[in-house]
Design a protein around this nucleic acid. Structure first.
Length: 580
DNA sequence: GCCGTTTTCGGCCCGACTGTTTTCAGTCG
């Protein structure tokens, strides 16, 4: 079993333990072990036979090593099975609802035998919750809304999870002789934040008539399939554990471009393109662009030749939403979109001084290895106590340390001293001005949940932005995809003020954060905001997540000129709001 | 549960906020 799946089982066990009101420290041990497994570069299945080796991993002791061995052997662990005789798997979903924690799950189970989101929904509709302690009208309404949002989002998967699933499948398919070109299409190719299902296109010698059937059989034998939905002439559909649906299509080479165009979408873009084709006497299908009158083949092997035959420049997948890209392609004025290689620095990252996993030096080396010219270390402040956030004194000490490490690096990379400063209830920052004055990069971010009217929440952030030391607004909408809704904010008002004050707004590239969606980013640019893209890395391996954020920037039609950290280090600092 | 070694037992990040209370439990990060 892969590390991710092992970690998943440990996380689930921790959740179940929490519902059963077990020792909090024991619960934490399971979570720590799960995290250790997840981030380990060693494949645990390869060393699972050796309990001693397992115990060399920090966070894994004697019992956890035995648990992992059980998982390898049986696919689960005894404690989890035991807990599942007492509780129900659906409770793990309940925990994902905003405002639902282990105590509430346990309460609903004991009082009402509610063990799933569907049952909770029924209980709310029947008014059964009101009789329970701590369940006032506001709390019940919050849950009702949470269920609504959950249902809206469920069935979609974060892009990086989908991509990992795609990569695994592609590696499997490549082993088959003659599957020469394999490409993910659909919303994954368009760089959406989430994908509903995965479309994988395959072409090559194995996809020609007469040979394709054995390729289809091979695809349908993919070991991770839990539910084979369909197996046809040139298509296999199935579901993986976790619910992700994948459609694999095997097509001859002369249809490949047409298929890629067709299955990349979006629906609206394709409708517009097909209408355009008809106007010109063509018909476009997933197999080819053909003449309407005699059905003769016009184009199909590549997307470029199809778009060209329709009088269009090739359109990057991220733009294919029928948002003006077809007109722009016709007039040869598609923007030169920002690219991954344009990014010269990442200015939001954490170290093991707070809740990160690596040292300043390790983060700097990793940034250097990515080809960056600079980075900023921006750890948490004291208000986020759980992260061991820094107070003024420790902030200054930390900044000194950052500058020392920069010297040690011998000019190979610039390291800016910064902080991710929390916004307090009154809109003030939780570091003193004298401290902020010593930092290169001050990011202000809302971390605490403030359930208050939109105007008040907005005013709070505006106050934080007004602070003359604020240079970047982080987590601008505070949303966590698939988990809860964003803070209630007047975002246009905030972005406008940022633009006036010269405060940059951050686009957080981490897939489950992605604070600004493409619509927000478009707005930010329209309002004249400075835009910064960051990963908010808590581990050296997180830095690569920048590519997902770049996709979002591309979806928002941004070019390198629109993004501050495409500039060299000194230009970047100079472009930030000047310090008082 | 793990860890450390003043090693076999005691410590293990905690403050802000909300909603429901009338002094605090639960959730979040």
């Amino acid at each position: 079993m892969d590390n991710r799946s092992i970690a998943q089982l440990l996380f689930e066990t921790a959740d179940l333990l929490e519902i059963s009101a077990a020792d909090p420290f024991r619960i934490r041990s399971y979570r720590r072990a799960a995290e250790a497994v997840e981030s380990s570069t060693i494949q645990l299945s390869e060393i699972a036979h050796d309990a001693k080796k397992l115990q060399e991993i920090p966070g894994i002791g004697k019992s956890m090593a035995a648990n992992i061995q059980d998982i390898e052997k049986t696919g689960t662990l005894p404690l989890r099975e035991e807990l599942l005789t007492k509780y129900r798997p659906g409770m793990l979903d309940l925990l994902r609802l905003p405002g639902m924690g282990p105590k509430s799950v346990a309460l609903f189970w004991e009082a009402l035998q509610v063990s799933s989101i569907a049952e909770l929904e029924t209980a709310i509709a029947e008014g059964k919750l009101a009789s329970l302690p701590r369940m006032g009208t506001k709390q019940i309404e919050k849950l009702r809304k949470g269920i609504e949002d959950y249902k809206k989002n469920s069935g979609r998967f974060l892009i990086d999870d989908a991509e990992i699933a795609a990569e695994k499948l592609i590696a499997y398919l490549r082993a088959f002789d003659g599957m020469d070109v394999i490409t993910p299409a659909g919303s994954l190719r368009r760089g959406r934040e989430t994908v509903g299902d995965l479309d994988i296109l395959v072409t090559g010698r194995a996809c020609t008539e007469g040979k394709v059937q054995s390729a289809v059989e091979y695809t349908a034998a993919y070991p991770l399939i839990v539910d084979l939905i369909a197996k046809g002439q040139n298509k296999v559909s199935f579901r993986l554990r976790g619910g992700l649906q994948i459609d694999v299509r095997l097509l001859p080479e002369n249809s490949y471009g047409a298929a890629l165009q067709y299955f990349t979408g979006s629906k609206m873009h394709n409708v517009a393109i097909r209408q355009r084709a008809l106007k010109r006497g063509y018909t476009l299908s997933e197999y080819s662009l053909a003449r309407v009158d005699d059905g003769s083949f016009v184009a199909g092997a590549t997307e470029e030749e199809i778009y060209a035959a329709l009088g269009l420049d090739w359109i990057p997948p991220e733009l294919r939403e029928n948002n003006g890209e077809i007109e722009a392609a016709e007039q040869h004025r598609l923007p030169a979109l920002i690219e991954l290689k344009d990014i010269r620095g990442d200015v939001h990252m954490h170290t093991n001084v707070t809740d990160g996993k690596n040292t300043i030096r390790e983060m700097a080396e990793a940034a250097l290895a990515r080809g960056y010219e600079y980075l900023a270390i921006t750890d948490h402040t004291k208000n986020l106590a759980m992260t061991f956030g820094l107070d003024d004194e420790r902030t200054i000490e930390h900044a000194r340390h950052i500058r020392e490490v920069e010297k040690e690096m011998g000019g190979r990379i610039r390291i800016f001293a910064g902080m991710e400063v929390d916004i307090l209830a009154n809109g003030q920052l939780d570091l003193a001005d004298e401290t902020l004055a010593q930092l290169d990069v001050v990011i202000v971010s809302v971390h605490s949940l403030f359930n208050m009217p939109e105007e008040e929440m907005t005013a709070r952030i505006l106050r934080a932005v007004e602070n003359p030391y604020t240079r970047i607004l982080g987590h601008a909408t505070g949303r966590l995809l698939l988990r809860r809704e964003a803070y209630k904010l007047n975002l246009p008002q905030i972005l406008r003020r940022c633009a006036e004050l010269g405060v940059a707004v951050e686009h957080n590239a981490y897939p489950d954060r992605l604070d600004l969606c493409d619509r927000d980013l478009r707005l930010a640019r329209e309002l004249g905001c400075k835009i910064v893209i960051n990963t908010d890395s808590h581990h050296t391996s997180h830095m690569e997540k920048i590519r997902y954020g770049v996709s979002q920037l591309r979806r928002a039609w941004l070019t390198r000129n629109d993004v501050l950290n495409t500039r060299p280090a000194n230009d970047f600092l100079a472009a930030l709001r000047p310090k008082p």
